[in-house]
């Protein structure tokens, strides 16, 4: 479903006289539909940058990202027109990081329901589904209608995870979404992700904890430290 070839990312910092910073050295991999690939390796090797390239938060410098979409055949996410990428993000691709970055002054259920609303689910139904999922993630009842900015790190992460998975994306990108969760919450998250996998969601993931990684990943790609570029 996802075939990445020679993907690389180099940042050019104009304020530093056009200095180049290697973010991702060329990488190739593929993930079958319903499969799960973990990116592993020391920090600084570009794992998160790879995910951001897949989501187009970073513009890839070289390479192609062939994605088999639900309705439009194979698309290259590296060069897809922007509004088509927006459509895919709304309809098919989810992305979750360790940090909750949400619109302020929206209650937790609203934050989580938003991807459903974008897909046309009626508001009451979307909010109900959001509450169910948040309860399952053991978010206390009195927090459901509170603003996540005031939540603890672990609670925010669970809101974040709920938001990313509620619409059952076809492709889910996970970047350390459990870093500050306790054991009990982690095992709930693992269960939820496995349910998604069973329903056919394809995943590309980064988990530092080898136990979580092994519980979820069908294949592991070691991302090697980047080569030093001679000055």
């Amino acid at each position: 479903m996802l075939t990445v070839q020679h993907l690389s990312k180099t940042f050019t910092i104009h304020q530093l006289d056009g200095k180049h910073i290697e973010g991702v050295s060329p990488v190739s991999f593929s993930v079958p539909e319903g499969g799960s690939l973990a990116l592993s390796g020391p920090s600084g090797t570009g794992k998160s940058s790879i995910l951001k390239c897949l989501y187009r938060t970073y513009l890839p410098t070289t390479g192609s990202i062939e994605y088999e979409s639900e309705t439009a055949g194979v698309l290259d996410l590296a060069t897809l027109p922007e509004h088509a990428m927006v459509h895919l993000r709304n309809a098919e691709i989810g992305y979750v990081t360790q940090f909750l970055r949400v619109i302020p002054r929206v209650p937790a259920t609203g934050v989580v329901a938003e991807p459903l609303l974008r897909r046309g689910v009626p508001e009451t139904e979307a909010l109900e589904q959001a509450a169910v999922l948040l309860r399952r993630l053991r978010i206390p009842e009195e927090l459901l209608d509170a603003y996540p900015v005031t939540f603890s790190g672990g609670e925010q992460q669970r809101v974040n995870i709920a938001r990313a998975m509620i619409a059952r994306p076809r492709l889910l990108l996970l970047d350390e979404p459990t870093a500050s969760l306790d054991k009990a919450s982690i095992s709930i998250v693992i269960d939820l992700l496995r349910e998604l996998q069973a329903q056919g969601t394809t995943m590309v993931m980064i988990f530092h904890d080898p136990d979580i990684m092994n519980a979820l990943a069908g294949q592991v790609l070691s991302v090697t430290p980047r080569e030093e570029i001679p000055a």
């Binding site: 104009h14 938060t57 970073y58 513009l59």
Partner: peptide, 19 residues
């Protein structure tokens, strides 16, 4: 420069946008 808003903010290409 133009692009997806999160890309413009996280991976700005033009010197002016970076500034």
């Amino acid at each position: 420069e133009s692009g997806l808003t999160d890309q413009i903010l996280e991976d700005p290409q033009h010197a002016y946008t970076q500034l």
